[in-house]
């Protein structure tokens, strides 16, 4: 059994029974299906029966322009070496995705992380609102695209202020200004070069 057969096998398995919005064969070891939200559980349990019994990863992607989150489930089979990605789009304003804990119990911590980082709710996972990585978080979930980490960092953690007096060392005149000018010039030349 070679791996191209595996990809074909998967394609026929998934595309016959489910409404697949988009299929992407990344290489002979990776394949991605985008399906509807309601079909994820059925598809995952069927894949598990076929041997894709290891949940490698579960995460989300923030498509802020389309106002959607994309959930990604990656499952792996130890007999047929193909990583299968199951993708689905969910609404960004009310992000709710039913937990897959009945199928893969190990998703518990991934879902807690996804809740913490993106604010997605997972009904069915009793612990999904417990804090995992970020403790005592007081802002919007930090991996959303509209979160500004620089502003948060500036607000929360003081920035060290340097005074520039130290540049005159041992009575010698500082070369700091010359260096800054030179750096500026190099930058200008670089910009012109690119055009």
């Amino acid at each position: 059994m070679n791996s191209t057969n595996n990809v074909d096998f998967l394609k026929s398995l998934v595309e016959e029974k489910y409404k697949v919005n988009k299929t992407e064969v990344i290489d002979q070891y990776q394949i991605s299906f985008e399906v509807e939200q309601v079909e994820v559980h059925r598809l995952l349990s069927e894949l598990k029966l076929e041997g894709w019994k290891q949940l490698s990863y579960l995460s989300a992607i923030d498509w802020i322009d389309e106002n959607e989150f994309e959930m990604v489930y990656i499952v792996f089979n130890w007999d047929r070496p193909v990583h299968v990605q199951i993708r689905t789009r969910i609404d960004r304003d009310k992000p709710v995705m039913n937990s897959i804990m009945p199928i893969f119990e190990g998703c518990k911590y991934y879902e807690r992380e996804a809740h913490e980082m993106f604010g997605i709710k997972f009904p069915g996972n009793p612990d999904h609102e417990k804090q995992l990585v970020l403790e005592e978080w007081d802002d919007m979930p930090p991996l959303r695209k509209d979160f500004d980490p620089q502003a948060y960092s500036d607000r929360k953690f003081p920035v060290r202020e340097y005074n520039n007096d130290f540049v005159e060392l041992n009575g010698k005149k500082s070369k700091q200004k010359d260096r800054l000018k030179r750096a500026e010039r190099i930058e200008q030349v670089g910009k012109r070069g690119n055009k």
Binding site: P149, Y152, S153, F157, P158, R160
Partner: peptide, 19 residues
């Protein structure tokens, strides 16, 4: 630990240890 280094703009990493 001095000024945040390459993580100066991270939401999860502090900037100055001596604070």
């Amino acid at each position: 630990t001095i000024n945040g280094g390459i993580y100066h703009d991270s939401h999860a990493v502090i900037n100055q240890l001596d604070q």
